[in-house]
């Protein structure tokens, strides 16, 4: 592994290979968002958060600016696909996604060898849901929004644990992920552990 400790050169800001990886993960996020859209839900506001899977996969691959580009692409792409780019829904989506992504990134960078993707996913979902509840309180529902907070947060809790389990599984077994990890060279100890685990 020649690139193990050497970050890939990012000439002219961000290299084209990195851009391709960001665009692929953003497209994957959009794809999962469409899959989620087709799953019937009792209320239109309830979400499983499948689209966060690529965002979590990107934690070990990208620097903060690159990661923020991925998150912005996910938010903008969802807004365009669902047609909500210029509506209140977009504010919820953007607020929740941005807050949770930053929290997950911070957690990953600070405690990446102490916390699993399940923990990261859980904190991300709780952050996203709390921000969305606050926005809903001020924009649409008023303080009665907190009546639906328990089922909303419970749904987030369950789905984020399942998502975290899947991300753990994916990052352990995916060929694409381990080659991307090797390529970007931004990983710390946990990233190297993940590569050696995938190789064995």
């Amino acid at each position: 592994m020649s690139s193990e400790n050497t970050p890939v050169k990012r000439e002219n800001g961000i290299g084209s290979e990195i851009i391709t990886k960001i665009a692929i993960l953003a497209a994957f996020s959009l794809f999962l968002s469409t899959v989620e859209y087709m799953i019937p839900k009792p209320l239109p506001f309830l979400r499983i958060g499948l689209a966060n899977l690529p965002i979590m996969v990107g934690l070990a691959l990208f620097s903060l600016p690159e990661y923020l580009i991925l998150v912005t692409l996910k938010i903008a792409g969802q807004g365009l696909i669902n047609g909500t780019l210029f509506s209140y829904i977009f504010i919820y989506s953007a607020g929740g996604s941005l807050a949770s992504s930053l929290m997950m990134y911070l957690l990953y960078k600070l405690f990446h060898n102490k916390i699993s993707y399940i923990g990261i996913s859980l904190v991300g979902a709780m952050t996203s849901n709390s921000v969305q509840l606050l926005l809903a309180q001020y924009l649409l529902f008023g303080s009665s929004i907190w009546i639906i907070a328990p089922p909303f947060l419970l749904m987030g809790l369950v789905s984020s644990i399942l998502l975290g389990i899947f991300v753990n599984h994916f990052t352990d077994r995916s060929r694409w992920y381990s080659s991307a990890l090797e390529f970007t060279g931004l990983y710390g100890k946990r990233g190297r552990d993940e590569i050696s685990h995938a190789e064995t």
Partner: peptide, 23 residues
């Protein structure tokens, strides 16, 4: 507003187009 698959200008707009082609 977004029904015509708008193409946004600039570097980010191109990146968005790339994302949609992969999608």
């Amino acid at each position: 507003m977004v029904s015509g698959k708008p193409r946004f200008p600039g570097w980010f707009g191109q990146l968005l187009s790339k994302q949609f082609l992969y999608f």
